[in-house]
Structure formats: C-alpha cells, structure tokens
Design a protein around this nucleic acid. Structure first.
Lengths: 366, 366
DNA sequence: ATGAAAGCGCTAACAT
DNA sequence: ATGTTAGCGCTTTCAT
C-alpha cells in the first residue's frame, strides 16, 4: 500500500509537508501544495487511519448507538442512521455502528480503545443508564432524546410539548371546543422515554390556554382497543369533535371506528395524528399529521457533535419545532345543532345524567 | 488513559506478555495469565485500536455497506444490520456503517486507510459496479446477493429459485393444477437484482416438473394494479386455483380482490406470498408465506467473512434453503363438483355459459 | 516555507 | 515461559 513517504518522495518533499498539506495546519506554497495534491491523487493515497489515530489522538470516526427495543419504529431509526452517516461524511467522518444491547459497557470500550472521537446516542430515556458513562467519558456525545436531567449533556429532539400544543392549536382554530388525546400504550408512559408525557403535557396546557374541553387517554396499540376507546370517548365526551392520536399503529383503526360510529371524518370529527412521515404517506386514510423529523435530527446531532469536537459551545438542549401537515381529516367544526343531532344518535338515546357529567372537564360544555 | 505498559507494570510483567495474554499467541503460565487478566480488569484496560491496527495490520472492524435505494424494505436492512453487528461482536469485531451512495470509491477509501479488515456488502445486483473493486482489494468481502458472475467472490443469499419451487410444490401437493405467479413490478426485473427472475425461474421449472398449468406476470405495486391483475388472471386462466405473490405491498390487495371477485381464500383459491416476516405478521390476512431470512443472512455473512479472515476456505456461493409457513390462505383444492357448486353460488344463480368462462369473470359482480 | 526527528501504543520477531 | 526491542505510518514539535 502507498504511504505518506511514497507521496513525499513522489512530490519531492518531506513527509511532514504532505501531512501539513492534508491537515492545512501550516501555510504551504501554492506550487508544493499542487504538486503534493497531484501526487496524492495519482498514487491514490489514503492515510492509514490507525497511524493517524495513534499520532494525533483523532480517529475521524463517530459512534452511533441505535436502539433495538421493540416498539421503536424501525424505518425511523434507519432514516436517522442514514442522515448521520451522510452528514458525518460531509465532515470527513466515518460511522461506527453500535447497538444498545451492550449498554454503557460498549461506550466505555469504544471510548477507551480510541475507536471514535465522539458519540451520537439514539433513544435516550428519562433516566437512561448510560448517562453516567456519557457524562464521565472525555469523548463528547450528542443524545437524540431528552433525559430528565440534561446537565453536562448535549441533547437534540423534536419539541414534543410543542407537538401537543400544535395539535390543539390547529383544532382550536378550526373551532373545535371539545377534544381528546388518544395516547400511547400505558407501558410507554411507564418506561419513561418522556416524549409521550410531553405530548400530553403540551396538549393539556394548550387546551387550558384556549379554554377547550380536553381529555387524555392511554391506549393499547390494538384495533380492538382503538374501537373500545372510540366508543368510550363518544360516550363520555358527547360534544367531542376533535381527536389527536399519538399512537401510530391504531390511527387508521380510530378513524374507521369513528366512521362506523356514524361520525364521519372530517365532517363530524377532525383527527390529527403524530406519526412518522413514511407511515403517514402509506396510510389508508389521509390524516392530518405531525411528522417526526428523523432526518433533521440525524443531521443536527452530527452538526452538534462536530461543534463540540471543535470546542465550539453548544446549547444543552436543542428542540426542533414541529410542523403540521394538513390533510383530509381535519375541518372546521360544524354548527352546534348538527353536533347535537349527531350526539343524540351515537349515545343511543341515553339521557345525559349528572352522574355521567360528573367526571371531568366536560361539564364546561353542556 | 491506561495503556499496555500500565497493565504490565501493575502485573509485574513485560508489555509483550500482556499482549500475548490478550492474543493467546503464546503459552503463558497459569499464574501470570491470571495476574495479567486481573490487572486488565481492575485497570479497565482496552487496547488502543489505532496502535493495534498499526502494529498488527488488523483492525477488528468490518465494514457493512447498506443500500439506500427505494423499494428495499427498510426493516429487512435493519434486521440484517443488527444481526451483523451482534455476530461481529461475538468475534470481537466492531462494525463500520457505509451507505451505498459513495459507491466503489468508499470501499477503496476504507480499505486503503485500513479502517476495516473486510466487507459485508448488501443488495448486490447482477452486474454490480462495485464488483471490480471488491475483487481487486486485498481485503476479503462477503456479498449478500448473488451477481451473474461469482468468480473470485463469496456470496450468500436466500435460494430464490428454491423459493419459487417451494411455492409450486406446496400448491401442487394440495392438488392445485393451475397456478399463477404475480411478481414484482417490471422495474425490478429490469434493474437486474436477479432474485425476482430467480423466483420466476424456480416457479416455472417446478410447474413444468409437476405438469401444472402456470403463468408469470409482473405487476406494479399498487392496489389498482393488483385489482386489474386479479381480473386478468381470473379471465385468462379460468381454472386458476392458486396464486403466488412475490410483491409485498399488494399481497392484501390481491387477496381482497379475489374475495371480491367471489373466489374465497382459501376455499376457492389458495394464495402464497413471498415476503419479510415482519410484514407477514402484521398483515390483515393470514397468508401462507415464505419469509426472507434477514437475520440468518447477516449471521452467515459475518461467519463467512471471519472464515476468510482466518484463511479458511469458503464456498463461492451459499444459498439458504427457504422455509414455508402455512397459514390460512392455502388449502386442498376442492373437488370439481364442489368447485362447480361454489362457482354457482358466487355467480348468484346465473348459469355457467361458455361465453362467461371464456371472457371475463368480472361480469359475475353486478 | 519546509525538514528532521521524536514519539503515539502496540505487536511480533528475536532473544534468553 | 518470559523479556527486549524494532518498527507499524503518521503528526507535530523543534529547527532552520
């Protein structure tokens, strides 16, 4: 293989000059510069990564830790991964792929053996077990996801609170006054990834701000659960005209259940989903949705890491603002009398008793 | 950071002894072995990858090249990738992630800069532009996919010919005598990845062997195309009782179209799909299917690469035998008179005229 | 603006 | 069974 001395000889300069041409850390006369670059190209020289790492303490490799857990939508991971690799290459970096199952130990191993200069870690939980290691290691890292305590870390994520708010805002401005959030399965809230709670939080906060009647419900990701949830909502919240679904697998089921219950979407009922683009695109029903910016997250994560490697200051938390894509599932709320008629139909003549009304904020809306 | 001399000092031996304990290339007395390992553990020593690569010409890293092309099912790529990483770790290897878009140049760069010891390359086409580079580079590689000319290469893939044969076999043994293959979109055949043709080839060959009436059709991956294809099949092949679908997105559409055309699955019509497990599991209709062994391919690819790195001989082509998973979409072909009765039923009493059988079964549906 | 040379941390031949 | 030592190919002081 061709080495730096070969290039030096071919260009009639010393090895160090070749090195400086490559790194740009020294001013080189235009002529040598050209000659050296020419030699590099004709010889097809690529510096030995190991030797470079040994001498300079820099590998030009970043490690990407991807989750394996069930329930993480795989295409989203791939989108992030591809964005990370592509962006890393823009900075002359390669990417080492680590899976989550080796946990914090893998981070220590890779950091200690100088296999990489820094980390991008996906799927960070509120109390992630890797945080101590990430804080302790001298190699910089960027986390995709926001843990409870971000001190001494660099995090980037979609602003999930703003997602919840945006959905409410959208519905509120279409005139809806009684809405519900059909959220993720209970496990998701318990596991503590944080984003599910944050969406609910933003949802509730914005609803209060708009003075809107709003309820939040965890829901299993099965079509049966979706059906039951729909009935429950229509029963307990008769004025309901807007539903936000933050539970990808059952979006279609909810829409279908609503239609079957006689609430046509979007005429009688508006539906907004929080879901990855890919799935939204191939969905049966065109549902207004807030996408997860997988690619942008990958790009930003790498850019932040590069900034840290260059000792440039970066914010502890970067939250990407959500966008909403309107589709045929949301519409202006219909006139009251129509709603009343619809409510009468779906509640099958059961009278509105005080007992039924006693439970929550619905009382605002008789 | 802790280095080999630190360990040596701590254990009271020379650096080379530590190195030999690590590599096992020398017999070490039990006592020193234990002492050194103890020191390694207590100090948390991990050898510097660059230094090791420089001195030994081995990186313990393999590069995985993943496709980005549209149409490759993303979860399958992830499954392979995860299997590759997991298996690589079993051998003490890490994985560098490369994307296809840098093409052969990336292979050269990574090989030349000694970033890895070998390659696993996914999504190999019949006349892949990277083949010359892969053949020329001194670093061994394993290809997932089989190009036209496999000379000097190591390839591993699902035996797609056997897939076609297996589907026919399954249907033939259930008594079906007239079957059709609904294949991938025309582009897939033209692009030349090979596997689509191979399935068709196996399908045709096995049908001939069984003396079965069989036709092959390319089909776009839209539900409209699926519907049109179903009509066309029922029209042109009136005795048809078995369909093999090698076109993941439209499996459900085909089943639905058949049902709507009055051919109940599996009573009147058996359907077999060639598709990734994941999609089969979450499909609406339980269709008998031949899975793509993504994980096994990843494992085998790494095992083959490790064998090559150890200079052990490996076969040029390794084809994994397909398995078939029976589900509720295939059944024994009904006896003629029963079929006639069923036909009579679904045609709602209209008589079976020669004309109707010759032309177009759609007219059955008013 | 360029060269010379001292390591970076490890492995493996060459000792004993 | 273990120690000594010469590189591996590069970066980066220190010189000029």
């Amino acid at each position: 293989v061709v080495k730096i001395t070969d290039v030096a000889q071919h260009a009639g300069v010393s090895p160090s000059t070749v090195s400086y041409v490559l790194s740009g850390k020294r001013t080189i006369s235009e002529s040598t510069q050209r000659r050296v670059e020419e030699s590099i190209r004709t010889l097809g020289y690529h510096p030995h990564a190991g030797a470079r790492a040994l001498a300079s303490n820099r590998t030009n490799v970043l490690a990407l830790v991807v989750p394996l857990r069930q329930g993480v939508h795989v295409p989203v991971i791939m989108q992030v991964a591809v964005a990370v690799v592509t962006t890393a290459r823009r900075f002359g970096f390669d990417v080492l792929l680590l899976t989550q199952d080796e946990g914090a130990e893998a981070l220590r191993r890779v950091a200690q053996s100088a296999l990489c200069d820094g980390f991008v870690v996906m799927d960070i939980e509120l109390h992630d077990s890797r945080l101590p290691t990430l804080r302790a290691t001298p190699r910089p890292s960027v986390l995709i996801g926001v843990p409870e305590n971000t001190e001494g870390l660099t995090c980037v994520d979609l602003d999930f609170r703003a997602v919840g708010e945006l959905c409410v805002e959208h519905l509120a401005e279409l005139g809806h006054r009684s809405i519900a959030l059909v959220g993720s399965p209970p496990e998701v809230y318990e596991r503590g990834t944080g984003y599910a709670e944050r969406v609910a939080e933003g949802f509730t906060r914005a609803a209060r701000r708009y003075g809107i009647d709003a309820t939040v419900h965890a829901c299993e990701a099965t079509s049966e659960a979706a059906l039951a949830m729909t009935w429950k909502l229509l029963d307990e919240q008769p004025d309901l005209t807007g539903v936000v679904v933050h539970n990808e697998p059952i979006v279609d089921s909810i829409v279908e259940a609503l239609n079957r219950a006689g609430r046509r979407v979007p005429d009688d009922m508006s539906v907004v989903a929080v879901r990855p683009d890919e799935l939204a695109m191939q969905s049966v029903t065109p549902v207004t949705w807030v996408p997860f910016p997988a690619e942008e997250l990958g790009v930003r994560a790498v850019e932040l890491l590069m900034a840290k490697l260059e000792k440039r200051p970066v914010p502890e938390v970067t939250l990407l603002p959500p966008r909403i894509t309107e589709w045929a599932s949301t519409a202006v709320r219909r006139a009251p009398q129509v709603s009343a008629a619809a409510a009468g139909r779906t509640t099958k003549g059961r009278p509105l008793t005080a007992e039924r009304l006693a439970v929550d904020t619905r009382r605002k809306q008789p």
